[in-house]
């Protein structure tokens, strides 16, 4: 598997798993997704990020043939989502925001049902169920009704169900939504193992931006529009080496004096956050300059959340290039 991956990465042209061209979706007069252009190479771990209501789920619905695009085109595994719905659905696995399990059935019965819907022979279903229940640590729950499972276990079973048929592409819509921290970590481990063991392309949406740092590539959505994209590390680095967050009653005067030296800032009420570009920045000097005019000063490394906030702020548009 690892050998294959390396050869794929060094190949001059990796195959495209997902491509959208000017993709739009209207719900009545509301434009949920606006002229989206995406390109996801095969084998990639791709994250579509943005706040709730930014059009992430609508995009997944269009790519998985659950919703028809109003305008534009989308190809998944080389098939047109409008005209070749069945062919698209054959290639993909899908884990929804809400569980799609039948609570009256047991864990094994749910996998069997999903396998039969995917036209798998029963022997294959049995073998694959064993394998996945083992991977997702659900083997001891095999004959328990789904209603008795915890939220994290249900999500794990949902994911097992989504990859029963060895899909080439896996869509995960907010896979960690509503889960506690240990379950969330568990889900990320499963995603990691699925990618490693099965080499599938993963298309993920999440609004927990810090969770997407493992992605090869992310795209930010806001109000249906793509406002930036790139590799998480490069995006974070392009923002700066540090973020300085200052809280003060006199934030306006502080901004006026600091922005000459540090450039534009992101302001939220009495808080402002500046980007620091130099690796060897003199924080003591800054502290002395601010003196006792502040409630708090804090510096830290930037993350994807900062990237989103900076590129999404209309006052800062143009100051950050992604």
């Amino acid at each position: 598997m690892t050998g294959n991956n390396t050869s794929l990465q060094t190949a001059p042209e990796a195959k495209i798993a997902i491509q959208t061209i000017g993709l739009c979706k209207d719900y009545g007069s509301l434009r949920a997704v606006d002229k989206l252009d995406l390109e996801v190479p095969e084998g990639q771990f791709f994250g579509l990020l943005g706040p709730n209501g930014s059009g992430k789920t609508t995009t997944i619905h269009m790519l998985t043939t659950l919703a028809r695009p109003t305008q534009g085109q989308a190809f998944v595994a080389g098939h047109d989502v409008r005209r070749e719905g069945v062919a698209v659905r054959r290639e993909i696995g899908l884990v929804f925001q809400e569980s799609a399990l039948d609570r009256t059935l047991t864990v094994a019965e749910n996998l069997r049902f999903a396998g039969l819907l995917r036209n798998l022979p029963t022997a294959v279903i049995r073998q694959r169920s064993d394998e996945l229940l083992d991977l997702f640590r659900l083997s001891d729950r095999r004959d328990k009704p789904v209603a008795t499972l915890s939220g994290g276990m249900r999500r794990a079973l949902d994911m097992a169900r989504g990859v029963m048929h060895h899909p080439r592409l896996l869509f995960l819509d907010e896979p960690t939504l509503g889960l506690d921290v240990p379950s969330r970590r568990g889900i990320w481990r499963f995603i990691e193992r699925l990618r490693r063991d099965e080499g599938i392309t993963v298309f993920l949406t999440t609004h927990y931006l810090e969770e997407a740092e493992e992605c090869h590539q992310v795209a930010f959505l806001a109000k249906g529009k793509m406002i930036g994209s790139g590799a998480p590390k490069a995006l974070v680095q392009s923002l700066g080496t540090y973020m300085v967050e200052i809280e003060s009653e006199h934030i306006e005067t502080i901004i006026a004096s600091l922005s000459r030296r540090l450039g534009p800032c992101l302001q939220d009420g009495t808080k402002a956050s500046f980007r620091i570009q130099e690796e060897q920045f003199d924080f003591l000097d800054l502290q002395a300059e601010l003196g006792n005019r502040v409630q708090s000063v804090r510096w830290r490394r930037p993350n994807l959340n900062d990237v989103f906030l900076w590129i999404n702020d209309p006052n800062l548009s143009g100051s950050v290039v992604v």
């Binding site: 659950l66 719905g85 062919a87 929804f96 799609a100 169900r161």
Partner: peptide
């Protein structure tokens, strides 16, 4: 209502 329909309509059959 309980989401199983999404499983059915994303199965690879017309």
């Amino acid at each position: 209502e309980f989401g199983v329909m999404r499983l059915l309509i994303t199965a690879p059959l017309p």
